[in-house]
Design a protein around this nucleic acid. Structure first.
Lengths: 146, 146
DNA sequence: TTGGGCAGGTTGTCATGTCAACTATGGTAG
DNA sequence: CTACCATAGTTGACATGACAACCTGCCCAA
């Protein structure tokens, strides 16, 4: 009756893989939220906006760098707009420019050091350089199509 | 003005780490859902229930093995109960026994090979044994408190 | 010119997660 | 026995995610 599934060892690997992400993500997210009121996704969006000089970007380009579905981004931006973190400016009736607002930039700057500290404490400082290297390499491998 | 955040290299590592989880999780989840109608979380719950002989477990124990918040589990079980995948049986007015139903077990068995194939294709087969080993080791490191 | 196709976004719906407040039961100290 | 208190779960509100259906300008070919 019971068809073939993963072997016990494979299951352990799978669970380890799942847990790894959830743990760290949760901790970093909570750290930012507690200290600044920003959520993880919000911080992510704001960072990318600020990363390019002007703090503004076409919505589609933003979706691409975030590796996000356009719908997901649209919903997220709507919420962030209501919270005053970003604005939408219509470039030509079709294209939307997402613009970092002043409050958005301020919250981002406030969150930066918290985020950095948390990422180091919860991830980077716990790993050897070789392990960090493996993470990056593995991430690239797993990101490929196919 | 711009306070210290992560260095460019640190940011790359962080993004790699984020992406790694999202990619694989998404793919495996979609594979299971398309083939069997079960979601990732549903498959997870059903697997753990089946993992111990009887297919039933105290809710709190289930929460512990899943590393899930009791609230999260309660919500998830409510949905799964409505879909007929599990039942709740009251052991003593306070303690809840979560029980795998027949349809639940059937869907689980149908999903097992799909899940296994997908995990192998999207994760295991892409990595060297050393990389797999590092994943497990890193997951343990990152799971620790503090 | 015009008829579509397609790209760029929005929206609705539902599943999943998080947090905090709340209920109820079982055990335990006096 | 009684007053607590910790344990086990539920619930409501809201944020996040995934998917599919749907607009609407832009462009290009006939």
């Amino acid at each position: 009756m019971s068809t073939k599934g993963l072997s016990p060892h494979e299951v352990r690997v799978w669970h380890a893989f799942l847990l790894m992400g959830e743990d760290v993500l949760g901790r970093v997210g909570r750290d930012i939220a507690q200290a600044t009121g920003l959520s993880g996704p919000e911080f992510g969006v704001l960072s990318r906006l600020a990363a390019i000089g002007k703090g503004e970007m076409r919505q589609q380009a933003l979706a691409r760098v975030m590796t996000w579905d356009k719908s997901r981004l649209s919903h997220q931006l709507t919420r962030m707009q209501q919270r005053g973190l970003i604005e939408r400016r219509y470039a030509n009736g079709k294209t939307v420019l997402v613009v970092l607002t002043k409050p958005g930039r301020e919250k981002l700057e406030a969150a930066r050091p918290i985020h950095a500290e948390s990422v180091r404490r919860n991830l980077l400082s716990r790993l050897t350089p070789e392990q960090v290297d493996t993470i990056v390499r593995v991430s690239n491998l797993l990101g490929e199509e196919g």
